[in-house]
Simulated assay, not measured.
Amino acid sequence: MPLKHLNAPDAAPAPPGARYSHAVQAGPFLYITGQLPADPDDLAAPLPADIGAQTHLVFKNLERIAAHAGYSLADTAFARVYLTDFKTDFPGMNEVYKVYYPDDARLPGRTTVGVTALARDARVEIDLVLYRD
């Protein structure tokens, strides 16, 4: 099955100076590129300062891309979370994460790592792998 490269310019923020697709579908898998807490409706808006607000905005972008491709966050098989201040921001990010994945019996796999920097001085970035049969 060929790869399907998806861009959702009306649904998600444009790549900030980089070249990539918002998502790539490979068979039943959808790989959503890492999303920052950028407002898709106002790319010039400053990023929120609070880790909780940033994480909600990241999930808003992930949801919009997933929906554009015909998926939902319930299809998430795996998440990768990048934090620039792991010790400080992990608890706040994790509380918001629970809002989007509340069912302990259906939690996606996840890796969460601390990084030195993210684009636009964001505090969090998340990418997803979704699966639908």
Rank of each mutant, 00 (worst) to 15 (best):
M1C: 11
L3I: 09
L3A: 13
L6S: 07
A11M: 11
A12N: 09
A12T: 04
A14C: 09
G17F: 06
A18E: 13
V24W: 05
Q25L: 09
G27C: 10
G27N: 06
P28E: 12
I32R: 01
I32C: 04
T33G: 02
L36V: 03
P40L: 08
D42S: 12
L43G: 13
L47E: 05
L47P: 01
P48M: 02
P48W: 02
A49H: 13
Q54E: 10
H56E: 14
L57Y: 05
E63I: 06
E63W: 06
R64S: 09
A66Y: 02
A66F: 04
G70P: 05
D75P: 06
A77Y: 10
L83I: 01
L83R: 06
F86G: 04
F86M: 13
T88F: 10
F90G: 02
G92C: 06
M93S: 00
E95S: 14
Y97G: 01
Y97N: 02
Y100N: 05
Y101L: 08
D104S: 14
R106T: 14
R106Q: 15
L107M: 14
L107A: 11
R110C: 08
T112E: 09
V113A: 15
V113D: 14
G114L: 07
G114R: 08
G114Q: 08
V115P: 03
R132P: 06
D133M: 11
